[in-house]
């Protein structure tokens, strides 16, 4: 039985960790880009960011004052039992958000979209968002928080099968350039792409691909992994770098997630997770133990439905 109080503690802790500690995979990725970058202005930006992450960790202050719209991704083991139930869990996540907003502090970014009412705690209607997934043969829950801004760097487009890889590349470039100029996307970014599903699925998959996969991680499907590498290289060959200066540092990594889609369409989304790619995960075990990490491990084989009721026959007989 997982104690609700431990979930609250874990959620509170990852709020601070995400805001202050840059994930090591991202830092390594940016250092690699700095080695290749030749433009003086672009190099200055990358070096300033590396200095900034060190300052954040030394001072225990947020690395970026735009602490985004803090939200949660929760993966629940099929065998996990929560002593407060899911309502208790959601209460704990709201409480942890409000406490961390005051204590870290985070910027209270969350306001009512029309009245602009600010509760000064990042909690409100549909805030923080909580998304769920499940995992077989596990009795833990993973709570991940992501702090992502979100005014720029994301776009959606309905493509059609006839648009092919050209259409994908062109839309990818559109987003890189339109938000890359002046560095509105705060690049170099982890670029996540959602392909397929319905419009909303494509948006959700792309966001998760950007925020919940570490730099260096490749899609297990070799064809998709090849496209990830191609798009990453394409983005870095534009001749544009950080802040839209001349350079080669646009895309730290590219992650693509797919979903089966309408036979007539190919919806696509592109999301840029910025120079302050903030994510942190806590695993709360059945005995209340908490383990912290920076790789959310969200896209498990089960999540991608690998080997699960693929063919029509198996799906038809699944109920028997």
């Amino acid at each position: 039985m997982i104690p609700n109080a431990r979930i609250e503690e874990a959620a509170y802790t990852i709020m601070g960790k995400a805001a202050i500690e840059i994930p090591e995979d991202y830092r390594t990725g940016i250092r690699g880009m700095l080695e290749k970058e030749e433009n003086e202005l672009s190099r200055f930006v990358l070096m300033s960011m590396i200095d900034n992450w060190e300052a954040a960790e030394q001072d225990r202050r947020a690395m970026c004052a735009d602490t985004g719209v803090p939200r949660y991704y929760v993966k629940v083991g099929n065998e996990a039992r929560l002593d407060g139930g899911f309502i208790g869990l959601e209460h704990a996540l709201r409480s942890a958000t409000a406490r961390a907003t005051r204590d870290v502090p985070l910027r209270p970014n969350r306001v009512h979209p029309l009245s602009r009412q600010d509760n000064n705690n990042n909690v409100g209607i549909n805030a923080p968002e909580i998304e769920y997934s499940f995992e077989p043969d596990a009795d833990w829950i993973d709570v991940t928080t992501v702090h992502k801004g979100g005014l720029f760097g994301t776009d959606y487009r309905m493509l059609f099968p006839g648009d092919g890889i050209d259409g994908i590349k062109k839309f990818f470039l559109d987003v890189m350039v339109q938000f890359g100029r002046r560095g509105l996307a705060c690049q170099p970014a982890i670029v996540g792409i959602g392909l397929g599903g319905s419009k909303d699925t494509a948006m959700v998959l792309g966001k998760q691909a950007a925020c919940l996969r570490a730099v260096g991680d490749a899609n297990p499907d070799p064809e998709i992994a090849k496209l990830e590498q191609e798009l990453k290289d394409l983005g870095n060959s534009i001749g544009m770098g950080p802040m839209g200066f001349v350079g080669t540092s646009m895309v730290v990594d590219c992650h693509i997630e797919v979903g089966y889609t309408h036979t007539g369409g190919m919806p696509m989304s592109v999301h840029s997770f910025c120079l302050s790619s903030r994510r942190a995960t806590a695993r709360v075990h059945a005995d209340g133990r908490i383990e912290y990490r920076t790789d959310p491990k969200w896209f498990t084989p089960y999540m991608r439905r690998e080997g699960i009721e693929w063919c029509a026959d198996a799906a038809l007989h699944a109920a028997e």
Binding site: S48, M49, N52, A55, M243, C274, L275
Partner: peptide, 8 residues
């Protein structure tokens, strides 16, 4: 610069 030099 960056734009996330919030800590600096």
């Amino acid at each position: 610069v960056g734009y996330g030099t919030g800590a600096l």
